[in-house]
Design a protein around this nucleic acid. Sequence first.
DNA 1: ATTATAAACTAACACTTGTTTGTTTCAAAA
DNA 2: TTTTGAAACAAACAAGTGTTAGTTTATAAT
Lengths: 192, 192
Amino acid sequence: MATATLTTRQNIRQTAQKLFRERGYAAVGMRELAKEVGIEAPSIYNHYKSKDDLLREICFDIADQFFKASEEVDVNEKSATKKMRAAIKGHISVIAKNIEASGVFFQEWMFLEEPDLAKFKKLRQEYELKFRDIIEKGMKKGDFKPMNVKLVTFTIFSALNATYDLYRTGEKLSQDEIADEIANLLLKGLKN
Amino acid sequence: MATATLTTRQNIRQTAQKLFRERGYAAVGMRELAKEVGIEAPSIYNHYKSKDDLLREICFDIADQFFKASEEVDVNEKSATKKMRAAIKGHISVIAKNIEASGVFFQEWMFLEEPDLAKFKKLRQEYELKFRDIIEKGMKKGDFKPMNVKLVTFTIFSALNATYDLYRTGEKLSQDEIADEIANLLLKGLKN
DNA sequence: ATTATAAACTAACACTTGTTTGTTTCAAAA
DNA sequence: TTTTGAAACAAACAAGTGTTAGTTTATAAT
């Protein structure tokens, strides 16, 4: 384990991710967060502007990672199935690498304040559109069975996004096993 | 619209479902809830013992409905596919009939206080076991492809449980269309 | 008309919320 | 050795928390 000594800022961030995830953003107080870090509440404000600032950093960092992962999906790949599998793997990989933070991303984003909230929603829509495009083109091409694209995209995201919750149950599964099994199930469902 | 005049108690309950769902249990105050109902905060306590009491009623009512729906799945049905489809339809039907409340059920249950929290978890596990059993037997029988049962069950529940969130997006889909499309996708993925 | 009951109210309690102010501590730079 | 700056602190603020006490209002039963 290459666990470098964390800066106070990193420590606050990491603890916030854990607590926001475990107990919910609204239910976690600054004093509780500070105590877990080992400092007093006002000291947090030397590193973050506000409680919301913390949430913002966590959420947008994950958003960033999702986009970067999606950019690595080969644009020239002809097979919709292969393209979809790559997108699914990338998506799950981001979650697996950021279990606490992605939990916050999925469950606590609504506590973001404007204008961040609007920006967040826009980013998310933009990202989801990438998946919908792959599915839509796959259907037109005949790789995928014709179905309600929006509903299918929604369902696939629901399945993928829940994986952050998988590690709590103590399942001893590798990231690849999880990604493959889920991708297999969903892709077989999609295929023509 | 057969909207009968609601009692104050029903009004509180319905408003709580809406607010807890929209803004989260911890973020909704009793004064805000009361204001939306059109009364003062202390008046709520003439109908409910506590804030948690409200959450408890909402969550356990939905739990009840899930169980009742699952009891209507034909035990003598031989085909695992047909049995699974019936279970999926029943599950989605409960969500569709209780969009706000099921949202609370899925997202806010962790704010239940002991011993209700433990009871809730137990019920949920018991219910999920019913689905896992169908899937497991379906695999042994050869109707379903052999896969990691726990992971597959988890994935299917993730897809089903997210449907409460589908109605926000303004999709003009009937409950049956949604249930059929999702069941088709997942069952095709399961099948051998 | 009187009593009983449910359900509303105002006022307040004890405590917690996120955050600000002003001060102190301490290590690195000059 | 002095200065500087970051980062910690205690104390406090205004607002909000769930809830209780005590009282009033209104409706239904005797």
